[in-house]
Structures are given as C-alpha cells and as structure tokens.
Computed example of a mutant assay.
Amino acid sequence: MQPVAPRYDGYTAYDYLTPGDDYTDFALAPEFGRVPEHELKLTVEQQQRVDRIMAEEVIFSLHEHAVVLPESSGDIKALNRTGRQRTAYSGLSRSGLTAVVDNFMAGASCVTSENGWKWDDMIYALGFRLADLAKQDYVVHAKSVADILDAKAQGQLALVAGLECASMIENELDRIDMLYGFGVRQLGIAYSQANMLGSGLSERNDGGLTNFGRRAVERMNKIGMLIDISHSGDQTSLGVIEHSSVPVMITHAGARAVWPIARMKPDEVIIACAERGGLIGLEAAPHTTISPDHLSHSIDSVMDHFRYCVDLVGIDHVAFGPDTMFGDHVAVHHAYASNYAQRQDGKREHPEIEYVEGLENPAENFGNIAGWLVKNGYSDEDIAKVLGGNILRVLGEVW
C-alpha cells in the first residue's frame, strides 16, 4: 500500500456537517487493513522500480466506486437510500492514484425507488458527493485532461464523474447536456437491463442500438462525453462502436474467451473497440474476471484476462478499471442481486470468495498491479501505457 499522500489533511466525508443532526450516521468499514495485504514478494530492486513508476507516471483507474461502505452489510441499502455515499478520502490518499473515474453508485442510491437508475436518485448521488468534494482540496473534480495533469503536478487526486448507465435520461437527449453541465464526463449505455438506448448484457434477446440510442451517441460525441459499453449487450456494444465518431471504452470487463459468462466481452467486441481506437479496462469485482487457471478470484485471475487482451489487441488498447470500493463488495452484490440479476450462461463452477485477493479496494489495486507487471518483466514504457497513458490518449480524442 502506498504511503499517505502529503496533500491529504485528514478530511473525512461531510466533515462540514454534524453527523446525526445534519444527516443519518452509520458505522463505516475501515478504509485500509480490512483484509490482509497481498504479498507480491518483490525484490528490493523491483519494489524501488514500482515506487518510481507510481511516483513519476499518471496512474489512472478507469472504473471504481471510491466510497466507503457501512461496516454492517445490513446497513448498505439504508445508507444508499439517503443518497449520501461517503467518499473514502483516507483510503484514496493511500492509493497512489493520479486519477479515478468514479461511477457514483447512482443505480444503488434507490432514494425514490427500490429499482434505481431514476433521474432524481442520480441527482442525489451526484449532488451530495460533489458538494462534499467542494469542501476539501485533496480530491478535485476533474473535467478535462488538463485538470488531471494539473492534479498530478499539485499532488492532488483527480476524480472524474461517471455514470454506468443512461437509463435515467429516459427519452430526453437534453439530459445528456445537463449531466455534462453537472460535471459528468463518462456515461454508460445500459446497465444489464435494456433501456431506451439499447440492450443490457442480461437480456436474452439483444436488439442492438436503438434509433434513440444512435441519437444519444451522436449527442455524447458532440458534447464530449466518454461512452462506456461495459454492461451493454454484445450487439448493442457493436452498434455503439460502429456509430460513434470517436473511440468508446469498455471501462470494466474481461475476456469471455477466458471466462465464459455474459459479464465478459467476446473477442469480436474487444477487437472492434480497439480497431476504432478504444480500449478495455480489466475488471476485478468479485466473481467476474475468474480464469480456469485461477478459479479462486484474485489478482492472478485478473491478470490472466490482461495477458489475453494484450495478446488479442495489443498493449495500446488495454488498461485497468478494477471496479472496487472500500468495504464488503460481496455484500453489495448480495444486497442488490434481485435488482441487477445478470445472465450467467455457460458459467463454470468456482468458489465464492470473501474478497479478491490483491485487488480488494482502490487503496491497494494499482500498487499491486504495478508490482505484478514489474515482477513479470514488462517494460517501463508498457507499464506506463496500461497504468494511465492509454486512457489519457483516448480521453484527449474524446473530450
């Protein structure tokens, strides 16, 4: 784990308010030390190289939920119903990250509906978090590549606001402009279930990108919104890639050729995305990027997907979007299983884990990824690409 960032002054979420009086208080999970640290067994020379890379390069997570969960799994929905997710400032200060695309857990807010993804719920999730960010100066709300580079120079962490799904825009194209005005810079097409734009990956029949979806893609291209197809169905994903005038991203997924579940992307989609200039960020949420060689989900499982994708489309089109948070991620999946059930056709048997060893939360993810890459002989140039350089290149074209 990285040392605490010098710029971080100890601020915790909503320090400007009085817990219990101004908002409902919950006992929160620890932001570091919840599970044992992963031991990579690096040599002194290898660790020094990791430390140098983490200090010098732009370290960019393409997809996280940079919040701390309640200590009790029974409080997860109760906290989310308030709309006030807690940014994990202390944990982030130990991450070594330059930038993170934070997807705000808008679908889990469920303030006005148990089913999530409502416009009002998204505004709660976005508004509370951004108000809190404005009261401190370590994590900055980034809206451009220049903001990210400035944060690196100033010893800050750049948080890019993203949303995994566009269901809340309903049939209103202008809501894309509104989201951009609120500072959102990445928007997913569909989250597992179909919506006005296209099909999600849980649908048995994927009708592809709709006419409205094409108009939404055009609007996102015009305004400069990064498009994410991680949770979209295969045909919808291909339609988005084809219709977009700029690259799109698979911000958090893996290769279906490695682990055959709907949550992973087939070669056809990964290749099409790369051929149009986009990239895939490797996922690490529990029970996703498993591999036949590492059935107990861990950093080694994830890196099996990484190696496969590098071989498939090249090092310039691969990055990391671990999709983690601070606290019991498996408990979140159990809490919302009925909301976002995903098709698991062809799923192989694997053990249920309590956490993904080596990629359990944003504080440890990239130090361990960098360590694995160093230990496995990747060059400094290639490591810099997959830890952030590839993302900055694509964002420079999209934004």
Rank of each mutant, 00 (worst) to 15 (best):
N221W: 11
T288K: 15
H231Q: 07
E283Y: 08
G224V: 15
S291W: 00
C309Y: 07
P260K: 13
A285I: 04
R263E: 02
A255T: 15
G314W: 11
L312P: 07
E242K: 14
H231P: 02
C273L: 11
F306S: 10
D300L: 09
D300N: 13
L279H: 04
R263N: 02
T236L: 07
V246Y: 00
E275S: 09
Q235F: 15
I223P: 07
H287L: 13
D311K: 13
H231C: 06
D311W: 12
G239R: 05
V310Q: 12
K265M: 06
A272M: 13
E283T: 14
I227H: 00
I299S: 10
I227T: 11
I299Y: 08
I270R: 02
L312F: 05
D293I: 13
S237P: 12
R307M: 06
A262R: 15
G277T: 06
G277E: 03
A285V: 06
G233S: 03
H297R: 05
L226R: 10
L279I: 14
D228Y: 01
I229S: 01
L295K: 05
K265Q: 05
V240W: 01
K222D: 01
A257I: 09
L295V: 11
S298M: 05
I223L: 09
A274K: 12
H305G: 10
G281E: 07
I270G: 02
S232G: 10
F306H: 07
A285R: 05
S291D: 07
P260H: 11
I229F: 00
T289M: 08
E283D: 14
G277K: 03
S291L: 06
P266F: 03
P247R: 05
D293L: 09
S245Q: 15
E283W: 08
A284Q: 09
S232W: 06
K222E: 01
S301R: 09
N221D: 06
D293P: 00
V248A: 00
M249S: 07
W259S: 10
M264W: 00
S291M: 05
M249W: 01
G278M: 09
L226P: 07
I299C: 09
A274S: 11
R307I: 14
T289H: 04
R263L: 01
I290L: 11
Y308E: 08
I270E: 01
M225G: 06
H287E: 14
H297K: 06
T251N: 01
G281H: 04
C309K: 11
D228M: 03
I271A: 04
V310I: 15
V246F: 00
T289C: 14
F306R: 04
Y308K: 10
D234E: 14
A253S: 13
P266H: 02
G281W: 02
M249E: 03
V269W: 00
G239Q: 05
A257Y: 01
V240S: 00
L226Q: 11
I270M: 03
K222Q: 11
E268H: 09
K222L: 04
S230K: 04
V240I: 10
P292C: 08
A255C: 13
I261Q: 12
D267T: 15
L282N: 13
K222S: 02
E242M: 11
L312I: 14
A262S: 13
S245D: 12
G278Y: 02
V310S: 12
G278D: 04
G224S: 10
A262T: 13
S232R: 05
T236C: 05
